[in-house]
Design a protein around this nucleic acid. Structure first.
Lengths: 245, 245
DNA sequence: CCTACCGATCGGTAGG
DNA sequence: CCTACCGATCGGTAGG
Protein backbone atom coordinates (compact mmCIF):
# COMPACT_ATOMS: atom_id res chain seq x y z
CA UNK A 1 0.00 0.00 0.00
CA UNK A 2 2.81 2.42 0.78
CA UNK A 3 6.50 2.51 0.07
CA UNK A 4 8.86 3.45 2.84
CA UNK A 5 9.97 6.96 1.94
CA UNK A 6 13.51 7.65 0.91
CA UNK A 7 15.45 8.31 4.12
CA UNK A 8 17.47 11.03 2.43
CA UNK A 9 14.33 13.12 2.08
CA UNK A 10 13.58 13.12 5.78
CA UNK A 11 14.98 15.12 8.64
CA UNK A 12 15.59 14.03 12.19
CA UNK A 13 13.81 16.86 13.98
CA UNK A 14 10.14 17.33 14.62
CA UNK A 15 9.31 20.60 12.93
CA UNK A 16 12.01 21.08 10.33
CA UNK A 17 14.14 19.14 7.93
CA UNK A 18 17.83 18.65 8.50
CA UNK A 19 19.66 18.99 5.20
CA UNK A 20 22.77 17.31 6.62
CA UNK A 21 21.56 13.77 6.23
CA UNK A 22 20.56 14.42 2.64
CA UNK A 23 24.19 14.52 1.62
CA UNK A 24 25.19 10.89 1.96
CA UNK A 25 23.81 7.50 2.81
CA UNK A 26 25.89 7.26 5.98
CA UNK A 27 24.68 5.07 8.77
CA UNK A 28 22.42 7.00 11.17
CA UNK A 29 23.15 7.28 14.85
CA UNK A 30 20.55 5.91 17.21
CA UNK A 31 19.24 9.39 17.85
CA UNK A 32 18.99 10.20 14.18
CA UNK A 33 17.22 6.96 13.46
CA UNK A 34 14.69 7.60 16.19
CA UNK A 35 14.08 11.12 14.98
CA UNK A 36 13.57 9.84 11.46
CA UNK A 37 10.99 7.34 12.63
CA UNK A 38 9.22 10.06 14.56
CA UNK A 39 9.12 12.38 11.59
CA UNK A 40 7.75 9.71 9.28
CA UNK A 41 4.99 8.94 11.76
CA UNK A 42 4.12 12.62 12.00
CA UNK A 43 3.94 12.96 8.22
CA UNK A 44 1.76 9.88 7.94
CA UNK A 45 -0.59 11.12 10.70
CA UNK A 46 -0.96 14.52 9.04
CA UNK A 47 -1.85 12.93 5.71
CA UNK A 48 -4.36 10.50 7.17
CA UNK A 49 -6.01 12.88 9.65
CA UNK A 50 -6.60 15.37 6.86
CA UNK A 51 -7.88 12.79 4.37
CA UNK A 52 -10.07 10.62 6.58
CA UNK A 53 -10.53 12.59 9.77
CA UNK A 54 -9.00 12.10 13.20
CA UNK A 55 -11.57 9.69 14.60
CA UNK A 56 -11.61 7.55 11.47
CA UNK A 57 -7.83 7.06 11.51
CA UNK A 58 -6.33 4.22 13.54
CA UNK A 59 -2.91 4.01 15.09
CA UNK A 60 -2.35 0.94 12.94
CA UNK A 61 -3.01 2.94 9.76
CA UNK A 62 -0.60 5.68 10.81
CA UNK A 63 2.16 3.19 11.53
CA UNK A 64 1.64 1.28 8.27
CA UNK A 65 1.49 4.47 6.20
CA UNK A 66 4.82 5.48 7.72
CA UNK A 67 6.33 2.08 6.93
CA UNK A 68 6.37 0.64 10.48
CA UNK A 69 4.18 -1.33 12.81
CA UNK A 70 2.28 -0.18 15.85
CA UNK A 71 5.24 -0.88 18.11
CA UNK A 72 7.16 1.98 16.52
CA UNK A 73 4.22 4.29 17.12
CA UNK A 74 3.87 3.52 20.81
CA UNK A 75 7.57 3.88 21.44
CA UNK A 76 7.40 7.43 20.05
CA UNK A 77 4.00 8.75 21.13
CA UNK A 78 1.77 8.12 24.08
CA UNK A 79 -1.37 7.69 22.00
CA UNK A 80 -3.31 9.19 19.09
CA UNK A 81 -3.99 12.39 21.05
CA UNK A 82 -0.28 12.76 21.65
CA UNK A 83 0.71 12.69 18.01
CA UNK A 84 -2.16 15.04 17.11
CA UNK A 85 -0.95 17.60 19.63
CA UNK A 86 2.61 17.40 18.35
CA UNK A 87 1.37 17.85 14.80
CA UNK A 88 -0.67 20.93 15.71
CA UNK A 89 2.18 22.51 17.61
CA UNK A 90 4.29 22.32 14.47
CA UNK A 91 1.54 23.84 12.32
CA UNK A 92 0.93 26.60 14.81
CA UNK A 93 4.58 27.55 15.01
CA UNK A 94 4.76 27.72 11.25
CA UNK A 95 1.65 29.89 10.97
CA UNK A 96 2.83 32.31 13.62
CA UNK A 97 6.25 32.55 12.01
CA UNK A 98 4.68 33.38 8.65
CA UNK A 99 2.49 36.06 10.21
CA UNK A 100 5.48 37.58 11.97
CA UNK A 101 7.44 37.58 8.72
CA UNK A 102 4.56 39.49 7.13
CA UNK A 103 4.86 42.16 9.79
CA UNK A 104 8.64 42.35 9.56
CA UNK A 105 8.69 42.56 5.77
CA UNK A 106 9.99 45.96 4.74
CA UNK A 107 7.21 48.15 3.42
CA UNK A 108 8.12 49.76 0.05
CA UNK A 109 7.83 53.02 1.93
CA UNK A 110 7.71 56.17 -0.13
CA UNK A 111 7.96 54.78 -3.64
CA UNK A 112 5.26 54.67 -6.30
CA UNK A 113 3.57 51.91 -4.35
CA UNK A 114 -0.06 51.35 -3.43
CA UNK A 115 -1.16 53.09 -0.25
CA UNK A 116 -0.75 51.32 3.06
CA UNK A 117 -4.38 50.31 3.34
CA UNK A 118 -4.04 48.28 0.18
CA UNK A 119 -0.92 46.67 1.55
CA UNK A 120 -2.79 45.49 4.64
CA UNK A 121 -5.36 43.86 2.47
CA UNK A 122 -3.02 42.38 -0.08
CA UNK A 123 -0.59 40.88 2.37
CA UNK A 124 -3.08 39.47 4.84
CA UNK A 125 -5.12 38.11 1.95
CA UNK A 126 -2.07 36.58 0.33
CA UNK A 127 -1.18 35.03 3.66
CA UNK A 128 -4.58 33.54 4.22
CA UNK A 129 -4.93 32.45 0.62
CA UNK A 130 -1.66 30.52 0.90
CA UNK A 131 -2.77 29.01 4.18
CA UNK A 132 -6.08 27.85 2.87
CA UNK A 133 -5.01 26.68 -0.53
CA UNK A 134 -3.20 24.03 1.44
CA UNK A 135 -6.35 22.02 1.94
CA UNK A 136 -4.48 19.48 4.01
CA UNK A 137 -3.62 22.09 6.60
CA UNK A 138 -7.17 23.38 6.50
CA UNK A 139 -8.76 19.99 7.11
CA UNK A 140 -6.29 19.36 9.91
CA UNK A 141 -7.25 22.55 11.70
CA UNK A 142 -10.95 21.81 11.37
CA UNK A 143 -10.40 18.37 12.82
CA UNK A 144 -8.54 19.94 15.70
CA UNK A 145 -11.36 22.36 16.37
CA UNK A 146 -13.99 19.67 16.49
CA UNK A 147 -11.76 17.46 18.61
CA UNK A 148 -11.12 20.31 21.04
CA UNK A 149 -14.86 20.74 21.52
CA UNK A 150 -15.09 17.09 22.54
CA UNK A 151 -11.90 16.25 24.39
CA UNK A 152 -11.38 18.21 27.59
CA UNK A 153 -7.70 17.31 27.76
CA UNK A 154 -7.11 18.54 24.24
CA UNK A 155 -9.10 21.76 24.49
CA UNK A 156 -6.71 24.05 26.42
CA UNK A 157 -3.90 23.42 23.95
CA UNK A 158 -6.05 24.29 20.98
CA UNK A 159 -7.47 27.31 22.76
CA UNK A 160 -3.98 28.61 23.26
CA UNK A 161 -3.19 28.31 19.55
CA UNK A 162 -6.37 30.18 18.72
CA UNK A 163 -5.70 33.02 21.17
CA UNK A 164 -2.18 33.42 19.84
CA UNK A 165 -3.50 33.76 16.30
CA UNK A 166 -6.19 36.31 17.15
CA UNK A 167 -3.71 38.38 19.13
CA UNK A 168 -1.21 38.32 16.30
CA UNK A 169 -3.77 39.40 13.70
CA UNK A 170 -4.91 42.19 15.99
CA UNK A 171 -1.32 43.37 16.42
CA UNK A 172 -0.95 43.21 12.66
CA UNK A 173 -3.97 45.44 12.09
CA UNK A 174 -2.87 47.96 14.71
CA UNK A 175 0.65 48.19 13.37
CA UNK A 176 -0.48 48.70 9.82
CA UNK A 177 -2.99 51.35 10.80
CA UNK A 178 -0.25 53.29 12.60
CA UNK A 179 2.11 53.08 9.65
CA UNK A 180 -0.60 54.16 7.24
CA UNK A 181 -1.79 56.96 9.50
CA UNK A 182 -5.36 55.70 9.23
CA UNK A 183 -7.90 55.01 11.96
CA UNK A 184 -9.23 51.48 12.28
CA UNK A 185 -12.99 51.21 12.00
CA UNK A 186 -13.22 49.30 15.30
CA UNK A 187 -10.93 47.87 17.93
CA UNK A 188 -8.07 45.74 16.58
CA UNK A 189 -9.47 42.81 18.55
CA UNK A 190 -12.90 43.06 16.97
CA UNK A 191 -11.44 43.57 13.53
CA UNK A 192 -9.14 40.59 13.94
CA UNK A 193 -11.97 38.39 15.09
CA UNK A 194 -14.24 39.38 12.24
CA UNK A 195 -11.51 38.96 9.68
CA UNK A 196 -10.44 35.56 10.96
CA UNK A 197 -14.07 34.45 11.14
CA UNK A 198 -14.65 35.56 7.56
CA UNK A 199 -11.56 33.70 6.38
CA UNK A 200 -12.52 30.62 8.37
CA UNK A 201 -15.95 30.67 6.79
CA UNK A 202 -14.43 30.93 3.32
CA UNK A 203 -12.04 28.12 4.13
CA UNK A 204 -14.94 26.03 5.32
CA UNK A 205 -16.65 26.64 2.02
CA UNK A 206 -13.55 25.70 0.05
CA UNK A 207 -13.70 22.24 1.55
CA UNK A 208 -16.82 21.55 -0.48
CA UNK A 209 -15.22 22.56 -3.76
CA UNK A 210 -18.53 23.93 -5.04
CA UNK A 211 -18.90 27.39 -6.59
CA UNK A 212 -18.01 30.14 -5.99
CA UNK A 213 -14.44 29.16 -6.82
CA UNK A 214 -11.17 30.45 -5.42
CA UNK A 215 -10.94 33.58 -7.58
CA UNK A 216 -14.47 34.62 -6.66
CA UNK A 217 -13.82 33.98 -3.00
CA UNK A 218 -10.73 36.17 -3.04
CA UNK A 219 -12.64 38.92 -4.82
CA UNK A 220 -15.42 38.81 -2.22
CA UNK A 221 -12.92 38.71 0.65
CA UNK A 222 -11.19 41.76 -0.80
CA UNK A 223 -14.48 43.65 -1.14
CA UNK A 224 -15.35 42.92 2.47
CA UNK A 225 -11.92 43.97 3.72
CA UNK A 226 -11.92 47.18 1.70
CA UNK A 227 -15.07 48.25 3.48
CA UNK A 228 -14.15 46.97 6.91
CA UNK A 229 -10.61 47.77 7.84
CA UNK A 230 -10.38 51.55 8.06
CA UNK A 231 -12.57 54.49 8.86
CA UNK A 232 -13.68 56.13 5.62
CA UNK A 233 -11.65 59.28 4.96
CA UNK A 234 -14.67 61.53 4.37
CA UNK A 235 -16.09 63.44 7.38
CA UNK A 236 -19.51 61.75 7.41
CA UNK A 237 -20.91 59.03 5.21
CA UNK A 238 -24.06 57.94 7.00
CA UNK A 239 -26.89 59.26 9.11
CA UNK A 240 -25.67 57.42 12.20
CA UNK A 241 -22.32 57.84 13.96
CA UNK A 242 -19.87 54.94 13.54
CA UNK A 243 -20.29 53.50 17.00
CA UNK A 244 -24.07 53.62 17.28
CA UNK A 245 -26.09 50.44 17.82
CA UNK B 1 -26.97 3.83 30.44
CA UNK B 2 -30.08 5.26 28.81
CA UNK B 3 -33.76 5.09 29.60
CA UNK B 4 -36.21 4.46 26.78
CA UNK B 5 -37.93 7.80 26.28
CA UNK B 6 -41.56 8.30 27.14
CA UNK B 7 -43.55 7.27 24.06
CA UNK B 8 -46.05 10.06 24.58
CA UNK B 9 -43.35 12.64 23.89
CA UNK B 10 -42.52 11.23 20.48
CA UNK B 11 -44.19 11.61 17.11
CA UNK B 12 -44.52 9.04 14.38
CA UNK B 13 -43.20 11.14 11.49
CA UNK B 14 -39.66 11.90 10.53
CA UNK B 15 -39.46 15.66 10.68
CA UNK B 16 -42.23 16.73 13.00
CA UNK B 17 -44.03 15.69 16.11
CA UNK B 18 -47.57 14.39 15.98
CA UNK B 19 -49.54 15.75 18.93
CA UNK B 20 -52.27 13.13 18.48
CA UNK B 21 -50.42 10.36 20.26
CA UNK B 22 -49.75 12.62 23.21
CA UNK B 23 -53.40 12.46 24.21
CA UNK B 24 -53.72 8.91 25.40
CA UNK B 25 -51.79 5.75 25.91
CA UNK B 26 -53.72 3.89 23.22
CA UNK B 27 -52.10 0.99 21.49
CA UNK B 28 -50.11 2.10 18.43
CA UNK B 29 -50.70 0.69 15.00
CA UNK B 30 -47.84 -1.10 13.31
CA UNK B 31 -47.11 1.98 11.24
CA UNK B 32 -47.14 4.27 14.25
CA UNK B 33 -44.88 1.98 16.18
CA UNK B 34 -42.41 1.78 13.31
CA UNK B 35 -42.43 5.55 12.90
CA UNK B 36 -41.83 5.95 16.61
CA UNK B 37 -38.82 3.67 16.47
CA UNK B 38 -37.51 5.57 13.48
CA UNK B 39 -37.89 8.91 15.25
CA UNK B 40 -36.17 7.68 18.39
CA UNK B 41 -33.27 6.43 16.32
CA UNK B 42 -33.04 9.80 14.56
CA UNK B 43 -33.03 11.70 17.84
CA UNK B 44 -30.37 9.43 19.26
CA UNK B 45 -28.22 9.79 16.14
CA UNK B 46 -28.47 13.58 16.22
CA UNK B 47 -27.41 13.66 19.86
CA UNK B 48 -24.48 11.31 19.39
CA UNK B 49 -23.21 12.72 16.08
CA UNK B 50 -23.15 16.19 17.58
CA UNK B 51 -21.53 15.11 20.84
CA UNK B 52 -18.92 12.63 19.62
CA UNK B 53 -18.72 13.17 15.88
CA UNK B 54 -20.01 11.08 13.02
CA UNK B 55 -17.01 8.79 12.62
CA UNK B 56 -16.69 8.17 16.36
CA UNK B 57 -20.31 7.07 16.67
CA UNK B 58 -21.22 3.44 16.03
CA UNK B 59 -24.51 2.02 14.89
CA UNK B 60 -24.60 0.03 18.11
CA UNK B 61 -24.38 3.23 20.17
CA UNK B 62 -27.23 4.84 18.25
CA UNK B 63 -29.46 1.82 18.71
CA UNK B 64 -28.76 1.53 22.44
CA UNK B 65 -29.20 5.27 23.04
CA UNK B 66 -32.61 4.98 21.38
CA UNK B 67 -33.46 1.97 23.53
CA UNK B 68 -33.08 -0.77 20.91
CA UNK B 69 -30.46 -3.11 19.48
CA UNK B 70 -28.68 -3.00 16.13
CA UNK B 71 -31.43 -5.02 14.46
CA UNK B 72 -33.89 -2.16 14.87
CA UNK B 73 -31.45 0.22 13.25
CA UNK B 74 -30.84 -1.88 10.16
CA UNK B 75 -34.55 -2.48 9.67
CA UNK B 76 -35.11 1.30 9.49
CA UNK B 77 -31.99 2.65 7.78
CA UNK B 78 -29.64 1.27 5.20
CA UNK B 79 -26.49 2.25 7.10
CA UNK B 80 -24.92 5.08 9.07
CA UNK B 81 -24.78 7.29 5.99
CA UNK B 82 -28.51 6.73 5.49
CA UNK B 83 -29.57 8.03 8.88
CA UNK B 84 -27.16 10.96 8.57
CA UNK B 85 -28.72 12.01 5.26
CA UNK B 86 -32.23 11.75 6.69
CA UNK B 87 -31.19 13.83 9.68
CA UNK B 88 -29.69 16.54 7.48
CA UNK B 89 -32.71 16.67 5.20
CA UNK B 90 -34.86 17.44 8.25
CA UNK B 91 -32.49 20.15 9.43
CA UNK B 92 -32.30 21.70 6.00
CA UNK B 93 -36.06 21.83 5.58
CA UNK B 94 -36.38 23.50 8.93
CA UNK B 95 -33.73 26.11 8.15
CA UNK B 96 -35.21 26.97 4.76
CA UNK B 97 -38.70 27.26 6.26
CA UNK B 98 -37.41 29.66 8.92
CA UNK B 99 -35.68 31.79 6.31
CA UNK B 100 -38.83 31.90 4.19
CA UNK B 101 -40.87 32.89 7.22
CA UNK B 102 -38.44 35.75 7.79
CA UNK B 103 -39.11 37.02 4.28
CA UNK B 104 -42.85 36.61 4.56
CA UNK B 105 -43.07 38.31 7.94
CA UNK B 106 -45.01 41.57 7.56
CA UNK B 107 -42.73 44.55 7.81
CA UNK B 108 -44.03 47.18 10.26
CA UNK B 109 -44.27 49.43 7.25
CA UNK B 110 -44.82 53.12 7.89
CA UNK B 111 -44.89 53.20 11.68
CA UNK B 112 -42.30 54.65 14.01
CA UNK B 113 -40.03 51.74 13.21
CA UNK B 114 -36.34 51.50 12.36
CA UNK B 115 -35.49 51.91 8.70
CA UNK B 116 -35.44 48.90 6.44
CA UNK B 117 -31.68 48.51 6.45
CA UNK B 118 -31.77 47.95 10.17
CA UNK B 119 -34.49 45.38 9.70
CA UNK B 120 -32.34 43.39 7.32
CA UNK B 121 -29.58 43.30 9.84
CA UNK B 122 -31.72 42.58 12.85
CA UNK B 123 -33.74 39.81 11.34
CA UNK B 124 -30.95 37.98 9.58
CA UNK B 125 -28.81 38.31 12.68
CA UNK B 126 -31.60 37.06 14.89
CA UNK B 127 -32.08 34.18 12.53
CA UNK B 128 -28.45 33.20 12.50
CA UNK B 129 -28.07 33.76 16.21
CA UNK B 130 -30.90 31.37 16.87
CA UNK B 131 -29.44 28.84 14.47
CA UNK B 132 -26.03 28.93 16.00
CA UNK B 133 -26.99 29.12 19.61
CA UNK B 134 -28.23 25.60 19.03
CA UNK B 135 -24.76 24.14 19.28
CA UNK B 136 -26.06 20.68 18.53
CA UNK B 137 -27.30 21.77 15.14
CA UNK B 138 -24.04 23.59 14.56
CA UNK B 139 -21.85 20.58 15.32
CA UNK B 140 -24.08 18.44 13.14
CA UNK B 141 -23.63 20.73 10.15
CA UNK B 142 -19.87 20.82 10.61
CA UNK B 143 -19.76 17.06 10.73
CA UNK B 144 -21.77 16.97 7.52
CA UNK B 145 -19.40 19.33 5.80
CA UNK B 146 -16.32 17.34 6.69
CA UNK B 147 -18.05 14.11 5.76
CA UNK B 148 -19.10 15.56 2.39
CA UNK B 149 -15.48 16.40 1.62
CA UNK B 150 -14.56 12.76 2.20
CA UNK B 151 -17.50 10.70 0.98
CA UNK B 152 -18.25 11.05 -2.73
CA UNK B 153 -21.73 9.55 -2.37
CA UNK B 154 -22.64 11.98 0.37
CA UNK B 155 -21.24 15.10 -1.27
CA UNK B 156 -23.94 15.93 -3.88
CA UNK B 157 -26.67 15.89 -1.24
CA UNK B 158 -24.82 18.26 1.01
CA UNK B 159 -23.88 20.48 -1.92
CA UNK B 160 -27.54 20.82 -2.76
CA UNK B 161 -28.37 21.95 0.77
CA UNK B 162 -25.61 24.51 0.61
CA UNK B 163 -26.68 25.93 -2.75
CA UNK B 164 -30.26 26.23 -1.57
CA UNK B 165 -29.14 28.21 1.45
CA UNK B 166 -26.90 30.61 -0.48
CA UNK B 167 -29.64 31.23 -3.03
CA UNK B 168 -32.20 31.91 -0.32
CA UNK B 169 -29.95 34.39 1.49
CA UNK B 170 -29.23 36.15 -1.79
CA UNK B 171 -32.96 36.40 -2.51
CA UNK B 172 -33.42 37.73 0.98
CA UNK B 173 -30.85 40.50 0.47
CA UNK B 174 -32.29 41.49 -2.90
CA UNK B 175 -35.84 41.62 -1.64
CA UNK B 176 -34.94 43.73 1.33
CA UNK B 177 -32.92 46.15 -0.73
CA UNK B 178 -35.86 46.66 -3.06
CA UNK B 179 -38.29 47.27 -0.22
CA UNK B 180 -35.90 49.70 1.43
CA UNK B 181 -35.11 51.48 -1.81
CA UNK B 182 -31.39 51.09 -1.17
CA UNK B 183 -28.68 49.77 -3.47
CA UNK B 184 -26.71 46.73 -2.37
CA UNK B 185 -22.98 47.23 -2.16
CA UNK B 186 -22.30 44.23 -4.39
CA UNK B 187 -24.20 41.46 -6.12
CA UNK B 188 -26.70 39.61 -3.91
CA UNK B 189 -24.75 36.41 -4.56
CA UNK B 190 -21.46 37.88 -3.36
CA UNK B 191 -23.12 39.50 -0.38
CA UNK B 192 -24.85 36.27 0.56
CA UNK B 193 -21.63 34.32 0.30
CA UNK B 194 -19.67 36.77 2.40
CA UNK B 195 -22.37 36.97 5.01
CA UNK B 196 -22.79 33.21 5.29
CA UNK B 197 -19.01 32.77 5.43
CA UNK B 198 -18.77 35.34 8.22
CA UNK B 199 -21.53 33.62 10.18
CA UNK B 200 -19.98 30.21 9.59
CA UNK B 201 -16.67 31.50 10.87
CA UNK B 202 -18.35 32.89 13.99
CA UNK B 203 -20.18 29.62 14.49
CA UNK B 204 -16.91 27.76 14.18
CA UNK B 205 -15.47 29.97 16.86
CA UNK B 206 -18.43 29.41 19.17
CA UNK B 207 -17.61 25.71 19.22
CA UNK B 208 -14.51 26.46 21.24
CA UNK B 209 -16.39 28.40 23.89
CA UNK B 210 -13.45 30.77 24.37
CA UNK B 211 -13.75 34.55 24.31
CA UNK B 212 -15.08 36.61 22.65
CA UNK B 213 -18.45 35.46 23.95
CA UNK B 214 -21.81 35.47 22.27
CA UNK B 215 -22.67 39.12 22.96
CA UNK B 216 -19.33 40.28 21.58
CA UNK B 217 -19.73 38.09 18.52
CA UNK B 218 -23.14 39.53 17.78
CA UNK B 219 -21.81 43.05 18.21
CA UNK B 220 -18.96 42.39 15.77
CA UNK B 221 -21.29 40.69 13.30
CA UNK B 222 -23.58 43.71 13.45
CA UNK B 223 -20.69 46.10 12.85
CA UNK B 224 -19.56 44.14 9.82
CA UNK B 225 -23.07 43.97 8.39
CA UNK B 226 -23.71 47.65 8.92
CA UNK B 227 -20.73 48.44 6.73
CA UNK B 228 -21.29 45.73 4.18
CA UNK B 229 -24.88 45.46 3.15
CA UNK B 230 -25.76 48.71 1.40
CA UNK B 231 -24.11 51.40 -0.64
CA UNK B 232 -23.49 54.41 1.57
CA UNK B 233 -26.12 57.12 0.92
CA UNK B 234 -23.59 59.89 0.37
CA UNK B 235 -22.41 60.60 -3.22
CA UNK B 236 -18.73 59.62 -2.65
CA UNK B 237 -16.90 58.36 0.40
CA UNK B 238 -13.59 57.16 -0.95
CA UNK B 239 -11.02 57.95 -3.57
CA UNK B 240 -11.79 54.82 -5.56
CA UNK B 241 -15.10 53.94 -7.21
CA UNK B 242 -17.11 51.12 -5.58
CA UNK B 243 -16.31 48.47 -8.18
CA UNK B 244 -12.58 49.11 -8.54
CA UNK B 245 -10.05 46.32 -7.81
C1' DC C 1 22.56 -3.08 30.05
C1' DC C 2 19.67 0.02 26.94
C1' DT C 3 17.25 1.49 22.71
C1' DA C 4 14.16 0.76 19.11
C1' DC C 5 11.35 -2.05 16.74
C1' DC C 6 9.06 -6.58 15.22
C1' DG C 7 5.71 -10.43 15.08
C1' DA C 8 2.07 -11.98 17.51
C1' DT C 9 -1.65 -11.72 20.27
C1' DC C 10 -4.33 -9.59 24.29
C1' DG C 11 -9.63 -8.42 25.49
C1' DG C 12 -13.45 -5.90 23.31
C1' DT C 13 -16.26 -4.31 19.77
C1' DA C 14 -17.24 -2.81 15.02
C1' DG C 15 -20.80 -3.11 10.85
C1' DG C 16 -23.75 -6.21 8.77
C1' DC D 1 -37.42 -5.88 16.25
C1' DC D 2 -34.07 -9.29 18.69
C1' DT D 3 -30.56 -12.96 19.29
C1' DA D 4 -26.78 -14.93 17.58
C1' DC D 5 -23.08 -14.87 15.12
C1' DC D 6 -19.65 -13.77 10.93
C1' DG D 7 -15.10 -11.75 9.26
C1' DA D 8 -12.24 -7.85 10.40
C1' DT D 9 -10.18 -4.83 12.92
C1' DC D 10 -9.67 -1.79 17.06
C1' DG D 11 -5.94 0.28 20.75
C1' DG D 12 -2.48 -1.36 23.50
C1' DT D 13 1.31 -4.40 25.20
C1' DA D 14 3.51 -8.94 25.96
C1' DG D 15 8.16 -11.46 25.21
C1' DG D 16 12.19 -11.91 22.11
Amino acid sequence: MQARPDPRMRGPTVCSYNPDIMKTKIRLTREQSRAQTRQRLLDAARTLFAAQGYAATSVEQIALEAGYTRGAFYSNFRDKTGIFLTLLRCEHERIMAELQALLDAPAPESQASPPHRDLLESRLLAHYARLQLDSQRLALMLEARLHAARDAAFEPHFRRFREDLLEAVGRYARTFAQRAGLALSMSPEDLAFGFVALCDGCALHRLAGSPPGDEDIERILRAFMKRMAFEPPGPSRSSEPPGSP
